[in-house]
Design a protein around this nucleic acid. Structure first.
Lengths: 154, 154
DNA sequence: GCGATTATCTCGCTGAACGAGAGAAATGAT
DNA sequence: ATCATTTCTCTCGTTCAGCGAGATAATCGC
């Protein structure tokens, strides 16, 4: 194996990993009557809820690159599924706050819980120094992709 | 930082990385008038072409989890875009072979080329032993996700 | 040959997401 | 204070990816 092969193999591993994660999410979504977009929205809402942030339809649509009409449809869907609740903001009554229901938390737990546990389990096969290398590596790769995205894929 | 925090941070890094890669792909796709499915199909076709394998609509649809009607639509789209060409298999004239056009190769190069170069560049900041750790780490994580997917997300 | 199987495509439909724009509430200038 | 502007959400009508059902055509097994 030459010295060029090893990094290239890592690139393919990265790609393969993202494909697997996507498929995992897609299968979970379809089992629960969710569309890919719904799952992405749910993840975003749960992240925000955990960070103690308030999400409005506008912000959600922005995060998912949906226009306002599509966002309304998405919020309607999530509300119909009992995952979120609309609530007028008393401070600024133009705004609607999206409250995450208990059911959404449970669903998120079902999605992430098991997988995260397994990932953490697999990480126990690495010592702290190795995990630190992995962290630096992932940070470096994420930085590259983020930068490339900002610059715009040519 | 406790010892539990570090692995959890790695989980979030992994997730963040896949999100960034997805967004990168989605932006590239929409810039070129492609749907997410079209890009996934293109990647699949280019991979197969590089491996010297022949792809038929049936196999492509299977890989992307589309039914036959959806697959026909997808192939129509790709053909209309001049990315692939339909060709009857002379051996088994029920089958159609999907030939990848030059244009698709160039498009794939535009998508992967720059990003891969940047990723390889960033990897030069790691010595061989570290890259080996990263490889083992990614393989372990991929294994977990693949296994979880087969078992079925609960 | 002839029925069963395989591979692809056609038809009609559903629904996610879009563009355009309406409607309500807040903000700022005069 | 009032009126124009801006902000936020939602409605309407449309487009199009993907689905289910089934038609069509070629191959294979007996």
């Amino acid at each position: 194996m030459s010295e060029v092969e090893e990094p290239m193999r890592l690139v393919h591993l990265l790609r393969g990993l993202t494909v697997e994660l996507d498929l995992f999410g897609a299968e979970f979504a379809s089992r629960n009557g969710l569309h890919p977009t719904d799952l992405r929205a749910l993840i975003h809402l749960l992240d925000a809820a955990r960070a103690g942030e308030v999400v409005t339809p506008g912000r959600l649509g922005e995060a998912l690159h949906l226009n306002s009409a599509g966002t309304t449809g998405l919020v309607d869907r999530l509300e119909r599924l009992g995952l979120i609740r609309r609530e007028r903001d008393p401070q600024d009554r133009r705004r609607v706050l999206l409250r995450v229901e208990e059911r959404a938390m449970e669903l998120g737990q079902g999605f992430f819980g098991g997988l995260i546990g397994d990932l953490l389990g697999a990480m126990r096969g690495f010592d702290p120094a190795e995990l630190d290398v992995a962290r630096r590596f992932l940070e470096a790769m994420t930085g590259v992709v983020t930068a490339a995205r900002r610059a715009g894929p040519e």
